[in-house]
């Protein structure tokens, strides 16, 4: 079975793998690297649960082959912040009760990060558009949008 060399940076650290061509990025992250924050739900780029940043752009990691990430820099929800140092978005999600079952949360956070990186003061409508590729089946969108708006407006309680 042919394997291909893959060098990439994940959450700031360099890694080297030998991967088969049909391995997806989401499988590399979850199964080989045990970064279980990234979720897979639909596997077809419809739900956004597997969203990660690839060279600063939000992508569905179920629609990227791992080998296509060769030379790239990947940020997953684990790279956003940890228990000791939560990212403001993570803190805001907690403060606003923007998490119900939690399955969509990592993808929501990464889409929110991409949105604010490119548009630090989005309107509510722009936040909604920024989350268009992420589904929450608890239907808790309002609190998610509130949380992102709070970060954008610097209204985070310390």
């Amino acid at each position: 079975m042919a394997k291909y060399p893959l060098d990439l940076v994940v959450n700031g650290s360099k890694y080297h793998f030998e991967v088969e061509a049909d391995l997806r990025l989401v499988d590399l992250l979850r199964e080989q690297m045990k970064l279980l924050g990234t979720k897979e739900s639909c596997g077809k780029g419809e739900c956004g649960a597997c969203t990660v940043l690839m060279d600063g752009k939000s992508v569905a990691s179920c629609l990227v082959l791992a080998i296509q990430a060769n030379g790239s820099e990947i940020v997953t929800v684990e790279g956003l912040g940890g228990e000791e140092a939560l990212h403001p978005l993570q803190q805001a999600f907690i403060q606003h009760g923007a998490v119900q079952c939690g399955f969509c949360t990592p993808g929501m956070l990464m889409s929110a990060k991409y949105l604010l990186d490119n548009n630090p003061r989005p309107t509510r409508e722009e936040i909604r558009a920024g989350l268009a590729g992420n589904l929450c089946r608890c239907t808790g969108y309002v609190k998610i949008i509130d949380a992102i708006q709070a970060v954008a407006e610097g209204r985070l309680e310390q």
């Binding site: 049909d22 596997g43 629609l63 082959l65 080998i67 296509q68």
Partner: peptide, 26 residues
């Protein structure tokens, strides 16, 4: 040919082991 993969990988969802040989033009 694969580039963004947003069509090809959806078309091969759940049968990635049956992907044809790929040339990535990315």
């Amino acid at each position: 040919i694969i580039a963004g993969g947003t069509d090809l990988l959806v078309a091969h969802y759940q049968e990635l082991d049956r992907l044809p040989g790929l040339m990535d033009i990315g």
